[in-house]
C-alpha cells in the first residue's frame, strides 16, 4: 500500500442501526447510488457476508452490516477495507453508465438545497430549486422572496457553491435562474426532483 489511507469517520443513520454513513473526502468517488462493482477489499467483506449493502452518497459511503454483526466489533475491519477501497476510485463501477460524475454533482446539489442552505432560504420566505447540472455548473432557481431580491443572488450563490464544493469539488459555478426567464439549458437536462434521504 503506497498511497496514504484517506481520512474517514462513521456517522449513525437515524432509524437504521445496522447502517453506518462513512464520511469520505469530497471528490474521492465520482458516482452515487448502489455501485455495480466495488474494489476488492470491500467486495471481500460483501462476499464474506459481513456487509450486506454498499451505497455511495456525495462524500459518503453508506455501509450496512449483516444482522449477526456489530459495528463495535467490526468497525476497524470495515474502516480499513473502505479506506483501501477508496485508494482505488476506478474500482468503483457505477450501476448504469449514464454520467456518474454529473449524477454525483446533482446529488451533492440536492443534498445542499435540502440541508442548511435551503433551510436558510426558506427561513427568509423563499426557496431554492435545482434546475440543471451541466459541465460542473449548477443552475438553481430562486423562488419566493429570494426572487428579485438583489442581495440574495450573489450571497446565496456563494453559499450554495461553497456548500456543494465541500461535497463535490468538481463544481465550478452556481448560477441562479429566474422562474419565468427561459433558462439556458443547452447541454443540460431538466432534473426530476429526487427525494434525498439523509
Amino acid at each position: 500500500m503506497s498511497a496514504p489511507r484517506p481520512p474517514v469517520h462513521a456517522e449513525a443513520v437515524p432509524g437504521r442501526p445496522s447502517c453506518a454513513r462513512w464520511v469520505v473526502p469530497p471528490g474521492s468517488l465520482r458516482l452515487v447510488g448502489v455501485p455495480e462493482r466495488v474494489p476488492a477489499p470491500l467486495a471481500r467483506l460483501l462476499d464474506e457476508g459481513l456487509l450486506v449493502h454498499v451505497e455511495v452518497e456525495p462524500a459518503a459511503v453508506l455501509l450496512e452490516l449483516a444482522p449477526a454483526h456489530t459495528w463495535a466489533a467490526s468497525g476497524d475491519v470495515v474502516r480499513g477495507a473502505l479506506q483501501d477501497a477508496l485508494t482505488d476510485p476506478e474500482g468503483w463501477v457505477p450501476a448504469d453508465g449514464d454520467d456518474p460524475a454529473r449524477e454525483h454533482l446533482a446529488a451533492a446539489a440536492r443534498e445542499v438545497l435540502a440541508g442548511e442552505v435551503g433551510a436558510y432560504a426558506r427561513s427568509h420566505g423563499g426557496s431554492l430549486e435545482l434546475v440543471a447540472v451541466h459541465d460542473g455548473v449548477v443552475d438553481v432557481e430562486l423562488r419566493g422572496t429570494c426572487d428579485g431580491c438583489p442581495a440574495a443572488g450573489r450571497t446565496l450563490e456563494d453559499r450554495v457553491l461553497t456548500a456543494i464544493r465541500s461535497l463535490d469539488p468538481s463544481v465550478t459555478a452556481v448560477r441562479s435562474v429566474r422562474p419565468d426567464a427561459p433558462s439556458d439549458r443547452a447541454g443540460g437536462r431538466r432534473l426530476l426532483p429526487l427525494v434525498f434521504r439523509r
Binding site: 468497525g75 474502516r79 480499513g80
Partner: peptide, 17 residues
C-alpha cells in the same frame, strides 16, 4: 456507532475527517 480507530495514523485520519 463505530468506535474510533486505535492505530496512531488511523486516528489522524479519523481526526482529519
Amino acid at each position: 456507532l463505530v468506535p474510533p480507530p486505535l492505530d496512531a495514523e488511523a486516528v489522524s485520519g479519523w481526526v482529519d475527517s
